[in-house]
Amino acid sequence: MSRLAYFVRETLISLRRNLLMTIAGIITVAISLFLFGGILLVSATVDHGTQQWKHGIELEIFMKVGATHTEVQTIENALKTDPQVKSYKYLSQLDAYNIFKKDFSDQPALVESTKPSDLPESFRVAPTKAELTQPLADAYQHRPSVDTVITAAKQIKSLLTATRWIRLVFISMATVLLASSLFLIVNTIRLATFARRREIEVMKLVGASNWFVRVPFMAEGLVQGAIGAGFAFGLVWILKIVITNLLGHHSQNLFSTFRVTSSDALGIGLIVLVIGALIGVVGSIVGLRRFLEA
């Protein structure tokens, strides 16, 4: 207990002594992790909206909710023999329900009040050529048992490539910033050890264990990384709310909604916190290395 009190006291003293460096470290950690978390969040949003448009799938045919087994069978046979169809995948009502549950995980009441039988069966179809998407969609749209056919709009396609690039750019920026925050923390710890070199000298002289000497400095790095990450977490959360509000008004079909769930934001926030703490600890270990040798 008294040892814990000692560590807390020493850490606080040292943080206060290097206040400016500490703040700079915290801010860079916060900004870089926010960039990093933000791009992950945007990616998650895009992923939700484009999940079904992968592996060459260009359109999804939704049956009417009450469609009979034979009606579904007829469509399936048509797809099977259609020379314009490269492949297709059948999604049962249960599949639809599972997807629904995932998409609306933060609206338990809605999930609660929906049964698998309320949802339509569907086929995800990959045409042999992308140009055939529209003719195929038109052809199946006219069948009586089909409720609606949705296609991966051009915008979505370009969005997919765009996000890939944006992701790359943002992640490289975040990496550069993370490196500089690491550098700042290393420097803060170096300054801290320098400011306390006499104390460290005495501690080593009287036989304080290596860990005892290190812990306050490591805690100092950890605190910086964690506080920075905490801010980043908050910013990611705000971004989540902003995205939700932006998208909320024009959500399209149930299954092509761009959305971001609380669990997305929470998961990303946790990643951000872990990275922040890691950066703090790694930074202080590097900062301490030279001074505490021997």
Binding site: G207, S209, N210
Partner: peptide
């Protein structure tokens, strides 16, 4: 080993010309 050095130093006191007081 370097982790055992502190134990050694706990058994050896030392004083210097410049006192090394805080």
């Amino acid at each position: 080993g370097s982790w055992k050095v502190p134990q050694l130093r706990r058994n050896i006191g030392c004083v210097f010309q410049d006192f090394k007081l805080l």
